[in-house]
Nucleic acid binder design. Structure first.
Lengths: 178, 178
DNA sequence: CACAATCATGTCAATATTTACATGATTTCT
DNA sequence: AGAAATCATGTAAATATTGACATGATTGTG
């Protein structure tokens, strides 16, 4: 599988990055669909260097702070493109602990269940609002082929996903109260 | 975390089950939100027995086929209820390989990108249709407190999620062609 | 200037998950 | 009756992921 490998190749292809940069990306937009901690990222970067897919240059910031700025080698770009162009089957499961719990909701007291649903609803609404604010920053849909086009696609995706989640929670709360 | 632990406790709480039964559940509705293979399930069942949360009875089916039918012990039900009633924070990331790839879509040829999107669209539409057929089997929303209520909630959730996915793919295809 | 937050890189142990290996019984279809 | 599909239970090795441990530099704030 090695999805992290390709996620990292993709990010480095966007722009030369340090492990720290990559860690940050996973906390930003992209983090809605893939995430990894630095403890997974640094070893993977080392491995990709060993495999000859990426290389790095050590840069000194300030007096002594060493940064390793990674960039793609030809082989890395090749493998990235191969992965991107593959027509993979849809993945059957996007794990969701909360929905799993709702499968067993008959064991929760009605009042408390509504509280749990409302707590999720609040968080999801907030998230949705944040995402919407971000998409409002685009005056128009970015040009196809630009990096921003990808940003825009996944942002829209995140918004639709959150909106559906909110819709589900709202409905579920209603269902509980009937 | 041990989500699998609680997933299994929840399933056994619904009805006494074998490892094989549990494996099947993860391939059915519930599999939309959580999944585990039998190689993960059997060791976990053993562990739960060791921890005194569940117990089993060996049943012979036919001539010689041995089944282990697991059921909840008090302590297991206690821990399940505790987990179900917790107000947990929303999980920030539902991993999605395809959307991750779309983040890097600027590296894919326009024509091929549309093909990839359409391939996903077809699969998602099919999935959505299957789910809708299932919900049509309910003549009405099940009674709150019944097991079917939980089934219904997650089924609706799956439908809304797939519909949002389909909507996103359709929009993205349009965006590519502009 | 002191403190906090953030930048920056790593390792290690534990846990979670997948893939492959392994075996045998029962049921269904031809 | 023979074959295929499904029922049924396990283990082992490899891979993926998390959480804790560890260290030091730089920047922003009061």
């Amino acid at each position: 599988m090695r999805t992290l490998k390709y996620a990292i190749l993709g990010l480095i292809n966007r722009r030369p990055s340090t492990g720290y940069d990559i860690t940050k990306e996973f906390k930003a937009e992209l983090g809605n669909f893939w995430r990894a901690r630095h403890s997974q990222i640094y070893p993977e970067l080392k491995r990709l260097v060993d495999e000859g897919l990426i290389e790095y240059e050590t840069v000194i910031a300030g007096e002594a702070l060493e940064k390793k700025v990674y960039s793609l080698k030809d082989k890395g770009r090749e493998e990235l493109l191969e992965w991107l162009n593959k027509d993979e089957k849809m993945v059957p499961t996007a794990k969701d602990k909360f929905r799993l719990r709702m499968y067993f909701s008959s064991n929760i007291e009605q009042e408390h269940l509504v509280e749990l649903l409302e707590s999720q609803l609040e968080q999801r609404r907030e998230k949705l609002a944040t995402l919407k604010k971000k998409i409002d920053g685009y005056s128009e849909v970015p040009q196809f082929g630009s990096q921003e086009f990808g940003d825009y696609l996944v942002l829209e995706s995140a918004i639709l996903r959150e909106a559906a989640y909110v819709e589900w929670l709202e409905r579920s709360i209603k269902r509980c109260s009937q």
